[in-house]
């Protein structure tokens, strides 16, 4: 295996970590929303999302760093100014920005659920409203969709 193949291995590993982490967070988040749950269960599910965060962080780093290196090393004369590279970078940045906005909101929701669980675990309209906030859900799932869109860009490479 040469340098190009090793770079591809680390780039794809980053993609698996990033999208895998997004899937973990998305599934745990969706599990908290699809049915009305007591705050203690919501707190448990949001607490488990922490295991996805290192995967997403490493995935973001690896996809970008090894991706940019791959553009330089690939034997097909790719350039950093090509449409598919620019679109992928914009979507990557959008996914990261939306993800960080969503992360702050979800952390607040998890903390509220934990407080409510400690205070008797009674159902809460405030918690339900936060869990089903349309704007927050759009940001959350928009971040995930941007990551999936990068995957499509990597395969079709429009303009290459």
């Amino acid at each position: 295996m040469g340098l190009y193949e090793w770079l591809l291995v680390f780039h794809v590993t980053g993609a698996f970590f990033l999208i895998g982490g997004v899937v973990i967070a998305g599934l745990l988040n969706a599990s908290a929303i699809v049915v009305d749950r007591p705050p203690s269960q919501v707190a448990t599910l949001f607490g488990l999302i922490r295991f996805a965060l290192p995967l997403i962080g490493i995935g973001m780093l690896f996809t970008l760093a090894f991706g940019l290196w791959l553009v330089h090393e690939a034997p097909w004369n790719y350039g950093y100014g090509e449409t598919w590279v620019i679109v992928a970078l914009v979507l990557w940045a959008l996914a990261g920005w939306l993800g960080s906005v969503d992360g702050r909101y979800q952390r607040g929701t998890g903390e509220l659920a934990a407080r409510l669980a400690a205070a008797g675990d009674a159902p809460s309209a405030e918690l339900n409203a936060r869990l089903r906030n349309v704007r927050a859900l759009a940001i959350s799932y928009g971040s995930g969709l941007a990551a999936f869109a990068v995957l499509g860009i990597m395969i079709w490479k429009p303009g290459a």
Binding site: F16, I19, G21, V22, V23, I24, F51, L151, G152, W156
Partner: peptide
């Protein structure tokens, strides 16, 4: 080859994330 490759990688990443979720819930 692009569409089957996209579906293959999409399915593989979803399989990875879902399997990891099952592991996390199972250990919890």
């Amino acid at each position: 080859f692009n569409l089957p490759l996209f579906l293959h990688v999409l399915g593989a990443t979803l399989t990875f994330g879902t399997t990891a979720t099952v592991a996390i819930l199972g250990f919890a």
